[in-house]
Amino acid sequence: MWPKEFDYVRASSVDDAIQQTSDNTDAKILAGGHSLLPAMKLRLSEPGKLVDISRLADLKGISANGTLSIGAMSTHAEIAASADVQQYCASLATACGMVGDHQVRNFGTLGGNIAHADPASDPPTVLVAAGATIHIKRSRGERSVSAEDFFIDLFTTDLEDGEVITRIEVPNLSGHKAAYVKMPHPASRYAIVGVAVILEMDGDTCKSARVAVGGATVSAMRASGAESALSGSSLDDAALNAAASAVQSDISDALMGDVSYPESYRQAMSGVYLKRAVKAALG
């Protein structure tokens, strides 16, 4: 299939994009297009106008100065291959390297990915666990929001009309043990469940833990019960089992499922994959 008719403009600047989408609520920002175009082709999304920001130099590039700053138009492939990302938050590189396939990763962007907010996509889960900050520009200036607050519901974010994601900031987690693991859907390769863990270790003891779940839930979300169960423990089997059951309660109000992989299964798998994530993080 192909999309319905629409107008297309290439934004000359971020401000131009903001203006073009503020004036027209029927307009949508077009980044790499690898989330939006498939939806438009299936006529699940029918914007009247696309404002292409993919070429704006301001939105590109990855830098690491104390924190990691990823331009919203960075592609998944660029992020997966970035030495800075590998150093600051390797599990984000892992997650970006699991999006779609190599063709999709070449052109799909992180900004586009998080704006689309597919609950089963991989990067949001890591961004939530990592405590990333989404930087947004709008006509009234700039604002930022934590990844945790950014993802609200199925395909729903904190982003408003006339706003453009400019960059994603990730703290330096290079001293942490981290991992992202997922069970891919056999058809779509999206996550049936994806779990990200970030562990601050003090010897054999887990000083603090951050855990996020996606795929099983309507949006990527923190699992605070699991975090408590891991924090202060030596990550032994008892702690992992406790965390595995905690994560299942953490997400119980936000579960998502379908006929092939119902909520109950995804919930149970969140526990299994949490344990696997911790083991993967510890290497």
Binding site: L42, H185, P186, A187, S188, Y190, S260
Partner: peptide, 8 residues
């Protein structure tokens, strides 16, 4: 299972 997103 009406698309390759769902039919494996």
């Amino acid at each position: 299972t009406g698309s390759m997103m769902d039919y494996a």
